[in-house]
């Protein structure tokens, strides 16, 4: 990607690009925020070392969310109104709407959701939008630990018996399709604007290709899991066996339904507003 153009503020962007970038940042911020909430619920992980790791990863996600929410401020100054604080306005990945049932759901999300987020964020590494480019390396540095954690547990579960492996497969399949969709709809105006402006270095198909190139070897070859993903015998390229249906898909929210987090979850976010404490900056 050429670095001819650089943008330092949302004012430098044309209207559709500004909106597309705003949507991307809000999706990333809300998704990381909710992922942090979900990780943090695992005080009672199956081992105390895992509880500590969960709470640590929760903080990282919050830290990243804080950075992305910070980027949004200038967009509001540039005229994009702040969203209304209701669940239906939240743009988190669907699989984070409600509490996870089991530790296997945790690991499934740790692998897939964290993985997809990182693939998306990596595509901003050489971004023409300077403020985001400056934070990518730090975020990815921290995500490397999440990936290690996810990978360690995934392999252990997959190798330690038929039952944990089968349950893990189920957990992965529960979020498989929406997660692959989360990387974006091919041909959407959003991705066109972002790629053309040099903000993101590839389109949604490119992101998905990177995602399956990275996780195919781990999920299928190393862990031996049964998922709709295979490598082409001749080219060695990873191919997705799932046809994604884009009906009801919302490009700005990257969700199929705009329900947002469930009431139980939203109550915890609402606490940010329903108080009179002097929270400062």
């Amino acid at each position: 990607m050429s670095r001819n153009r650089e943008f330092s503020t949302p004012h430098d962007l044309d209207e559709p690009t500004r909106q597309a970038l705003y949507d991307l940042f809000l999706v990333l911020a809300d998704t990381k925020h909710l992922l942090g909430l979900r990780y943090g619920e695992w005080l009672g992980a199956p081992a105390i070392e895992a509880s500590i790791a969960s709470v640590a990863m929760a903080q990282d996600e919050f830290g990243h969310a804080r950075l992305f929410y910070g980027l949004l401020r200038e967009f509001h100054e540039a005229g994009i109104p702040e969203r209304e604080e209701v669940p239906s306005e939240y743009r988190n990945f669907e699989g984070l709407d409600r509490v996870w049932d089991s530790w296997l759901d945790f690991i499934a999300a740790n692998v897939l959701v964290d993985g997809a987020l990182s693939v998306q964020i990596e595509s901003l590494q050489n971004s023409s939008y300077v403020p985001v480019r400056r934070m990518v390396a730090k975020i990815l540095q921290e995500e490397a630990f999440h990936h290690q954690h996810a990978r360690g547990w995934l392999l252990r579960l997959a190798r330690e018996g038929a039952k944990p492996k089968a349950e893990l497969e189920k957990a992965l399949k529960r979020i498989w399709e929406p997660l692959l969709q989360w990387l974006g709809r091919p041909g959407s105006e959003h991705e066109r604007a972002l790629v053309e402006a040099g903000i993101q270095d590839t389109d949604s198909e490119g992101l998905r290709a990177r995602f399956i190139e990275r996780f195919g070897p781990l999920l299928i070859e190393e862990a031996g899991l049964d998922l709709p993903l295979s490598s082409d015998a001749i080219t060695g390229q990873w191919v997705l066996g799932t046809a994604l249906s884009w009906e009801d898909w919302d490009d700005a929210f990257r969700r199929r339904s705009r329900t947002g987090p469930d009431p139980e979850t939203f109550r915890q976010i609402e606490s940010f507003r329903k108080h009179e404490y002097p929270v400062g900056s």
């Binding site: 903080q59 990282d60 830290g63 804080r66 730090k138 921290e142």
Partner: peptide, 9 residues
């Protein structure tokens, strides 16, 4: 040291 630094203030 971390994006999640709790001690920025």
């Amino acid at each position: 040291t971390a994006t999640a630094c709790p001690a920025m203030d």
